[in-house]
Amino acid sequence: MSISNLIKRILALLMLVFVNIAYADVVVIVSAKSPITSLSADQVSKIFLGKSATFPNRKPAYPIDQQIGSAVRDEFYAKVVHKDSSQLAAYWAKIIFTGEGRPPKLIVGDKAVVKTIADNPDAIGYIESSSLNHSVKAVLVP
């Protein structure tokens, strides 16, 4: 291996480390009162895209979105749903303008999301892991 290749590899590794630091860690949460303990990325994705109206236990699921353009939202959709903001907007354009459904309810900020979800065993949302407290539990760490 030549020196220049080695340097390139080290730089690539360093970039990876920095990118990981720059990313906040998103966690998917439900109320501490909910019987759900864990969900797969596919199950969460279906609930947030309106393809499934229920949790795997057939109980109704009410997804809660965060502010468009927020880091936590972009990370959630990139890691769990594999869509960026414009792909997501294109997806909902199809659903809304055919009357097939509506996007998740929007609540701004981790604090408000945690508070709402703590009180609603049917709700599901996502926050940064640092905002976790005893009133909610993480069901997916993507």
Binding site: D65, P103, K105, L106, I107, V108, K115, N120
Partner: peptide, 12 residues
């Protein structure tokens, strides 16, 4: 809803 117009912290 997608644009963040409705923001009610204690919304059901």
């Amino acid at each position: 809803d997608q644009n963040g117009a409705s923001q009610n912290e204690v919304a059901a």
